[in-house]
């Protein structure tokens, strides 16, 4: 049987130049740093409501997000790189979330998991205490749809975040790139 070796979706950044006795890798330091950074993202254990259960599912045996470099869930924001907002953010929680975010060391990333964190979701209308989207409080990198999103969706979001980090681009640059591709 032929073994098909697929290219890793994002190989090590840089080009290899063959020289006698081995090879030399040429790359930029930025690329290497981003590559390393993206493959070891430590999430903060942060869940406010229902979506947190799906986040736990994603962490446990069947879905296992440690396969992608997310295994070291930290309980303190000072050691975390990425905060997964799993659940509704209400007015009383918003300052706390901001404070948690401020305590995280740079560079830091945010994933808004679920309809609530994205837009207030099911609690958009006629509620007096729900923040209509976590991006009113802190900047968000990746949004995940669903109520709650499946663990696979969260995995996809995490991989998307990795790609974003590897590309090293800002939100506007990514947007511009997309528009170019569209043309």
């Amino acid at each position: 049987m032929d073994v098909i070796i697929t290219e890793p979706s994002t190989p090590f950044p840089g080009s290899v130049h063959e020289v006698p006795g081995g090879g030399i890798v040429l790359s930029t330091l930025d690329d290497v740093i981003n590559w390393a950074r993206s493959n070891s993202l430590w999430p903060l254990v942060f869940g406010t409501s229902c979506c947190a259960i799906e986040m736990m599912s994603a962490a446990s045996a069947k879905y296992d997000f440690s396969r992608f470099g997310f295994e070291v869930a930290r309980a303190t924001p000072r050691q975390a790189d990425v905060i997964i907002i799993a659940g509704t953010i209400v007015n009383k929680m918003a300052p706390v979330l901001k404070r948690l975010f401020d305590q995280m060391p740079d560079p830091k990333y945010v994933i808004a998991m679920g309809a609530c964190a994205t837009s207030g979701g099911p609690f958009f209308y006629n509620t007096y205490s729900v923040v209509k989207g976590a991006d009113h409080v802190i900047p968000v990198d990746v949004y995940v749809a669903g109520c709650p999103p499946r663990p696979e969706a969260l995995l996809h979001a995490l991989i998307t975040l990795q790609e974003k980090i590897k590309s090293g681009l800002t939100r506007d640059q990514i947007r511009a790139q997309f528009q170019e591709d569209g043309k």
């Binding site: 406010t48 609690f123 006629n126």
Partner: peptide, 15 residues
């Protein structure tokens, strides 16, 4: 309490 008080009771009055 109240860090996840989502005002469900109020919301239900209009559903």
């Amino acid at each position: 309490l109240g860090y996840i008080h989502r005002s469900i009771e109020k919301m239900c009055e209009s559903l």
